[in-house]
Simulated scan of single mutants.
Amino acid sequence: MPVSPPSPSSPSPSPSSSGFPPASRDRIAAELRAAGCVFAEDEADLVLAAARTPAEAAALVGRRVTGLPLELVLGWAGFAGLRIAVAPGVFIPRRRTEHLVAEALAQAPGAAVVVDLCCGSGAVGAALAAALDGPEVHAADIDPAAVRCAEGNLAAVGGRVHQGDLFAALPGSLRGRVDILAANVPYVPTGEVALLPAEARDHEPTAALDGGADGLDVLRRVAAEASQWLAPGGCLLAETSERQAPAAVDAFTRAGLTTRLAVSEELYAHVVIGVG
């Protein structure tokens, strides 16, 4: 999983559209900046758009300055042009993971069956469903809170969400049928979890961050079983870090997948792609 805190990724509405005087934006931005918010002006716009009254705006700002992630303050995260509902205790989608979505669509533009493994909020599955032509969408996570959140985000596209440990959560009928298997697995080495920004460390489940001793335990498990689930020509995609990328590519290759690494310099994102 990404290790840096997310930044606002949706267009910021004009504060005047919320009925607040322009001075409100400056005051809120100053308060947020003093609390250490890097994107204070953008966050002020989002707070003003979400609040109906000055008292509500003050309450939202109060929650933010205590260190609560902006997405949890607002109740949603911007991802691939969508508003993804988020909830306490659920991994918040990062902008860099949009690179995984783009690579999946480039690899399998006609995908009919999509699986979002380690789905968290279901953001990847929702983004793929929005871009494809009515795919069958499944998502899975070991965390009940994530499953509930993903169910809400995937309901509109008829997505089915399953609870369990990786492939054990999926219905057996999916074996050999999956065109896109997106696995945004946890990949922070255990010893580095404590070094994560407080927004991630204090507000997201450790299971969504901790990838084992070298950060690749879950990725290796997914790679080892993926070929049993992929349709002919289907693809597995997993996000990793620059440092881990060579070992991640090796894990995919050892699993019998035709493997390549796709890098986005803009998003500082590294995605390993394996084709069955």
Results as ranks from 00 to 15, higher is better:
Pro135Ser: 08
Ala194Gln: 11
Glu151Ala: 12
Thr258Asp: 15
Gly67Trp: 09
Arg220Tyr: 06
Ala223His: 02
Ala102Val: 09
Ser4Trp: 08
Asp217Val: 09
Arg95Lys: 12
Asp45Leu: 03
Arg243Lys: 13
Gly36Thr: 12
His270Leu: 08
Asn184Val: 12
Ala104Phe: 04
Trp229Asn: 03
Gln228Trp: 00
Ala34Arg: 14
Glu98Ser: 13
Pro246Trp: 11
Ala34Thr: 13
Asp26Arg: 15
Tyr268Thr: 14
Leu82Pro: 03
Phe20Gln: 02
Gly81Gln: 10
Ser4Tyr: 12
Val263Gly: 00
Glu31Ile: 13
Val161His: 03
Ser17Asp: 14
Leu267Ala: 15
Gly134Thr: 14
Ala35Ser: 12
His99Asp: 02
Val124His: 04
Ala80Val: 06
Ala108Gly: 01
Ile180Pro: 01
Ser7Phe: 08
Val178Leu: 07
Ala106Lys: 12
Ala44Ile: 09
Ala34Tyr: 02
Leu267Ile: 09
Asp26Pro: 01
Thr258Pro: 03
Glu31Ala: 15
Phe20Ser: 02
Ala223Cys: 10
Ala23Ile: 11
Ala207Cys: 08
Ala104Asn: 04
Ala183Lys: 06
Arg52Cys: 13
Ala183Val: 08
Arg64Ser: 00
Pro93Leu: 13
Ala58Trp: 07
Glu56Phe: 07
Pro21Met: 05
Gly81Val: 10
Tyr268Gly: 11
Arg83Asn: 04
Gly89Ser: 05
Ala44Trp: 01
Ser9Asp: 11
Arg260Trp: 05
Asp217Glu: 15
Asp217Trp: 06
Glu56Tyr: 05
Ala104Thr: 09
Val185Glu: 00
Leu209Trp: 06
His270Ile: 04
Asp214Pro: 06
Ala245Pro: 10
Arg27Met: 13
Ser264His: 10
Ala102Trp: 03
Met1Lys: 09
Arg177Leu: 03
Ser18Ala: 15
Ala106Phe: 03
Glu98Asp: 11
Pro171Cys: 11
Ala168Ile: 03
Ala130Cys: 04
Leu154Thr: 07
Val272Leu: 11
Leu195Cys: 08
Gly81Tyr: 06
Gly233Tyr: 14
Leu257Cys: 04
Ala77Phe: 01
Asp141Lys: 11
Leu48Tyr: 06
Val47Leu: 15
Val47Met: 12
